[in-house]
Design a protein around this nucleic acid. Structure first.
Length: 381
RNA sequence: GGGCGCUUCGCAUAGCGGCAAUUGCAUCUGGCUGUAGACCAGACGUCUUUAUGACUACGGGGGUUCGAGUCCCUCAGCGCCCA
């Protein structure tokens, strides 16, 4: 089981410092949670992950159920032992895949609508995604590996997550689309709420279980969901779902949601943050948050620096002998790797730069949050 | 000296009478927030009122044809073979 202790509360915002203790280690919060979807931080070995200031990771129920199957992970001693990575772990429930492989894929959009994507269509009650079927009891998926059908509902997800053995597991939910209308979002919410209760009942392990707040961009639904989920005996709370067509709504949404959640329990914001998001969400009282961006962008050749993003595959970096970021303490920046060399490797389609940039990005993100923790300690945030 | 072949948008290619013309690489632009995706999309002759638009273009020149990157002649450069 986990324990969560708040060590300092900001006077300027809802930000707080905390210590999250898990069977596999302690997490200083607020903390960034790198994503290890299929039991790997893509491009990194577990030893490399250990050197990125990573405190806790999140893996995925859906992906590990498809491949290799939770039995293999369990037989391997659980997610940490299987990965040879002794760190606190969370597992996502598969609820995000209800969206990302469903309406998200159908409409070619993420959970935050970009400015260019017009909302001339909406998702309404009764509508189903092309590749999966959402029922009252769960979701019928088709495995992207071999096309076989697989059913994932709250009971199934919890059973899988118990087999995977993470320290913190998540309730099975439906992440709704930014183009879902109010009625669809409401019905979905009610279903997610029913599933939350099923998850609580289904859990027999001593893993921590977080409930997930939904409600999309709708104030009434966010409040309703936060009150409902916040009223259930979860060990912590995650905030999920879509954030409308404007990032400004994200802070508002957190302001609607977080005050309704039990103050003493940890709060996780699912699937956010760019660097610029971090101070905002932390100021609203988020304790942990995961995001694919540092790892995902690294494999596209994008490195994050104190002076912005670098697209390292660009020709202009070929003769730039500076490190990615002079002010970064990571082993890549301190170890003599130049932009020039990384650019060459990227253009030559070598795989080493993907590893090197991933290490840098994770270290950079984790350091960034470390500074935000320091800012809270100093009363600046 | 003789014979054969090649020359297309940065590089490499396709093209065998209807073509502003294929594909790959490169380049540029955009996208990516609980990861299906070491990925996806777009541009890549010039101009413009961005259009079933105009102009200029497949080594140079000339010809055949309603129409030529494509056929013919010729010149140039490159390559191979024979003396």
């Amino acid at each position: 089981m986990i324990s969560f202790t708040i060590t300092k509360r900001s006077k300027k915002s809802r930000a707080r410092l905390g210590i999250l203790k898990t069977p596999h280690g302690t997490v200083q919060t607020p903390a960034f949670v790198p994503v290890a979807t299929q039991a790997a931080v893509k491009a990194l070995t577990s030893e490399q992950v250990m050197r990125t200031k990573t405190q806790i990771l999140i893996s995925n129920t859906f992906h590990l159920h498809i491949r290799p199957g939770e039995k293999v992970v369990k037989a391997g001693g659980g997610i940490q032992k299987f990965m040879n990575l002794q760190k606190p772990f969370m597992t996502d429930s598969g609820g995000f895949q209800v969206f990302s492989l469903g309406f998200g894929k159908d409409f070619g959009m993420g959970k935050i609508l970009s400015q260019k994507q017009k909302q001339n269509t909406s998702i309404q009650v009764g509508q189903q995604p092309k590749l999966l079927k959402i029922t009252e009891d769960g979701v019928l998926f088709r495995a992207y590996t071999d096309g076989r059908e697989m059913f994932l509902g709250p009971k199934e997800s919890i059973a899988i997550q118990q087999a995977l053995g993470a320290d913190i597991i998540l309730a099975f939910d439906e992440c709704t689309s930014p183009i879902a209308d109010h009625e669809y979002t409401q019905r979905s919410l009610e279903k997610t709420h029913r599933w939350a209760k099923v998850c609580l009942k289904a859990k027999t392990s001593d893993q921590a279980l977080y409930g997930i707040v939904q409600g999309g961009k709708f104030k009434d639904l966010r409040i309703e969901s936060a009150q409902f989920i916040g009223g259930l005996p979860f060990d912590g709370f995650a905030i999920g779902g879509e954030f409308g067509d404007n990032k400004a709504i994200m802070s508002k949404m957190l302001r609607w949601t977080i005050p309704e959640l039990p103050d003493e329990k940890p709060r996780h914001l699912l699937g956010i943050g760019y660097l610029e998001d971090m101070p905002k969400i932390i100021a609203e009282g988020v304790d942990t948050f995961d995001c694919i961006v540092p790892t995902h962008y690294a494999r596209r050749g994008v490195a994050f620096t104190s002076r912005g993003e670098l697209e390292l595959s660009k020709q202009k970096f070929l003769n730039d002998r500076a490190p990615i970021d002079r002010n970064c303490g990571c082993e890549v920046c301190q170890g003599g790797y130049t932009r020039s060399y990384l650019t060459h490797l990227l253009r030559a389609k070598e795989i080493a730069p993907l590893t090197l940039i991933t290490i840098h990005n994770l270290f950079f993100f984790n350091t960034y949050v470390e500074r935000l923790r320091a800012a809270i300690a100093q009363g600046k945030l």
